[in-house]
Design a protein around this nucleic acid. Sequence first.
DNA 1: AAAATGTGCAACCGCGGATCG
DNA 2: GCGATCCGCGGTTGCACATTT
Length: 315
Amino acid sequence: MGRSPCCDKLGLKKGPWTPEEDQKLLAYIEEHGHGSWRSLPEKAGLHRCGKSCRLRWTNYLRPDIKRGKFNLQEEQTIIQLHALLGNRWSAIATHLPKRTDNEIKNYWNTHLKKRLVKMGIDPVTHKPKNETPLSSLGLSKNAAILSHTAQWESARLEAEARLARESKLLHLQHYQTKTSSQPHHHHGFTHKSLLPNWTTKPHEVSFSEMKESIPAKIEFVGSSTGVTLMKEPEHDWINSTMHEFETTQMGEGIEEGFTGLLLGGDSIDRSFSGDKNETAGESSGGDCNYYEDNKNYLDSIFNFVDPSPSDSPMF
DNA sequence: AAAATGTGCAACCGCGGATCG
DNA sequence: GCGATCCGCGGTTGCACATTT
């Protein structure tokens, strides 16, 4: 393409912002909203490119930004979401209210990543580096089917699929309401900021497309090398997801719903444990171990990260 | 006390997707 | 349909400050 960066324009300032510049930007956005970032600097009397203004606003000046140290729960949320989403900082940031993607990214790179490495956990895969060979574990029948890798990857896939599913539904709901009212803008914020940015946009999701996109229910089958995906055709994903969504929306916010999704025993418990009701009835205890193994595995990750006794509400 | 090294974080850069004309 | 433009994201850099030698 060869499009030159907007900051290449002669005379545009780069580098740290001065308090005067901050004041100008703040005053302009408070009065007019940011509108087009491209044209904002000129209107606001700033010798900066629009990109620089947008960055300064989103990462620093926005009034709804919480600064300072991350608390334990935020740390755990970041680690968990990173395990699921990878380096999708903006998606992670949507579940940490008042934190910016840049701040989360910096915190991950400077603190959390190092801590995981120190504890012998691969910060990319979130797996312990010295994985015990299956053969030496003496695991029960069903537990032996799965390596930790497969368990974790499968949970990750399912949760990601569920997140995508829910996002689409939320987009759909948003789009339906949008047809009767304009998108809500306040100081340049849009409803979109609440949503994972990697999902499709509302108008792109037709009902049939959405139905098609309902992901396979992921089940573990007998493979030591990975997982096999199986459809569960009878399951009414649309209605159940809708129900889940309505339920989570009644809480304190989307992030709580999502945390519940990840940790509240729905997604992970179900995928890890198979069906708990079913396993409860089995006499071998193998599936109970199966559930416990996974729970312990996840516990161990967070205990590694924070060696103090866990008082996390998440587990 | 000074130099070297490490750390934290704001800001920049380049890319890709979306949108517009 | 296509190129130009805009926007947002993730990776990276650069600098100020802290800590160590």
